[in-house]
Design a protein around this nucleic acid. Structure first.
Length: 464
RNA sequence: GGCGGCGUGGCCGAGUGGUUUAGGCAGGGGCCUGCAAAGCCCCGUACAGCGGUUCGAUUCCGCUCGCCGCCUCCA
């Protein structure tokens, strides 16, 4: 049984489903105000892996992840560029999906956009005002957190202590410094929607409540996001649902940061590396492997060195796929269980993998199972045990696929005429035992960027 | 000020009250190879420091030091 850490309780607990076999998962998506960075990549990969594992466990998953396409920074940046907001957000969203595709992140089942939900947000805000838990001021409509039972659940702090820590000057009109804006009244020139409280736009925390409840229904199973969304974003989402008398997420999951020199990577610190830059200089699968190598709640340090380590590990798995001509199990979509495998399985390894993943997504342990299988496969093959070798390799392929990791056994490197000639010449030289010539030809091929290997079928080259 | 997390062998990074190891990368030795590459085998007696609990702690408790995060937009 799958156990997951729940931020609301601080404990690792079984996921409680509303109906057997079905899981609704809402993950806070990006604000499309610029280029996505490594942090966005991590949360996307972490929840992609979770989603894939839920599928692998035989569950029917509805994965919803939003696009925040109206927000202060979006307004500012679009204005800076002198282009309409919708054009600006469309450009950034297209970039987002392009990068997600490159990372092998499955597209969500539903992608709600904040701007498409403003009407329903206005309805929620109206309800909250009618119930007396929200109130209007000169600048907008606010939620009174003192009226929300259990406020501070996700922050895991009592309300008093949160209030004591508030570092921001309170709006004079706010009843509590922790009260947050549901509706921002528009200043001249700002984009706005008509509402009972005047033209304006919704506060950030309102969109996710409305969209998640609309698409997944009350009491949906899982709500996730980066750790920095825990408070106040998720706290405030929950507060609105609770204040509106709705059952909200049953289980909260938050992933750790990407760090740079030990510090959190963030837009505000400006210490971020864009995913586009990363993908330009490394195998997209390396980042997935890097993310999988550590537990999702731990911080990960992304450096050229850790990326290189991941790429080296990947090369080892690719070599396995090459040696055993493993098929691409992801071609038909995410594996929905061990049955997706081709051929016999190493049941013990599958069980070890499942035990790791069931334990709050222990991907490092799951990965260890994959690497163990790789060694076993090679070892068995070296010993002439073909059946055992193929079983281990096939199992490794399945488990890697379950994690969204595609092993590339066949690389269709176009071999140019000159290189092909060098290969033929080298085979001739080796046949004639002219080692000096063979070595010289190898050096020449390597100089041209090829990785040269001898095999029973003769010289093999591939791009390195 | 309030709350929380972390400190593991050269590097990354899991895990656990004790007979036997996470795993990966790098490194050393060996096998294989004409030489390589790939692969396989062997090798590192690590758990911040100081106390305590215990027959026994890296793992439990306390303290100290160091690092980080949230309480503000942020994945």
């Amino acid at each position: 049984m799958l156990l997951l850490h729940d931020t609301a309780t601080g404990e690792v607990a079984p996921l409680r489903l509303r109906s057997p076999g079905k899981v609704g998962l809402y993950v806070c998506g990006p604000t499309v105000d610029g280029i996505p960075h490594l942090g966005h990549g991590r949360f996307s990969l972490v929840f992609d892996v979770l989603r894939r594992y839920l599928l692998f466990s035989g569950l029917e998953v509805t994965y919803v992840s939003n696009i925040t396409d109206i927000e202060d920074k979006i307004i500012d940046r679009a204005a800076d560029r002198g282009i309409p907001i919708d054009e600006f957000t469309a450009i950034n969203e297209a970039l987002w999906w392009e990068i997600m595709d490159a990372l092998g992140v499955l597209r969500p089942d539903e992608v709600p956009h904040a701007t498409a939900y403003v009407d329903r947000m206005i309805v929620l805000i109206g309800d909250l005002v009618a119930k007396g838990v929200a109130y209007e001021t000169a600048t907008g409509v606010y939620l009174s957190v003192l009226d929300v039972p259990g406020y501070g659940l996700l922050a895991r702090q009592p309300l008093d202590s949160l209030r004591a820590g508030a570092r921001i000057e309170a709006d004079e009109e706010k009843r509590s410094p922790l009260d947050f804006v549901l509706w921002k009244k528009a200043k001249p020139g700002e984009p706005s929607w008509e509402a009972p409280w005047g033209a304006g736009r919704p506060g950030w925390h309102t969109e996710c409540v409305v969209m998640s409840l609309d698409l997944l229904g009350e009491g949906f199973e899982l709500h996730g996001g980066g750790q920095d969304l825990t408070f106040p974003h998720h706290e405030n989402e929950r507060a609105q649902a609770v204040a509106d008398g709705k059952e909200f997420a049953r289980h909260w999951m938050h992933n750790g940061w990407v760090t740079v020199g030990g510090e959190k990577m963030s837009k505000s610190l400006g210490n971020f590396t864009s995913l586009a830059d990363l993908l330009a200089r490394s195998d997209a699968r390396a980042y997935r492997l890097l993310v999988l190598r550590s537990h999702y709640r731990s911080p990960i340090e992304v450096t050229p060195d850790t990326i290189a380590q991941a790429e080296a590990g990947l090369a080892r798995l690719d070599e396995l796929a090459r040696r055993f001509a493993l098929s691409d199990l992801l071609a038909e979509g995410p594996p929905t269980g061990p049955d997706a495998a081709v051929g016999e399985l190493d049941e013990e390894a599958v069980a070890a993998f499942i035990a790791s993943m069931d334990d709050d997504l222990d991907t490092p342990g799951a990965l260890a199972a994959v690497f163990d299988l790789a060694r076993q496969a090679n070892s068995a093959a070296d010993a002439g045990d073909d059946r055992g070798a193929i079983r281990a390799a096939g199992t490794a392929n399945l488990l890697a696929a379950a994690l969204g990791l595609r092993l590339q056994g066949v690389v269709d490197d176009a071999v140019d005429e000159v290189s092909a000639t060098l290969v033929r010449q080298r085979d001739d030289a080796r046949a004639a035992k002219d080692w000096a010539a063979a070595d010289a030809l190898r050096a020449e091929l390597e100089g041209a960027g090829w990785l040269v290997e001898d095999s029973a079928e003769g010289t093999r080259i591939r791009r390195r």
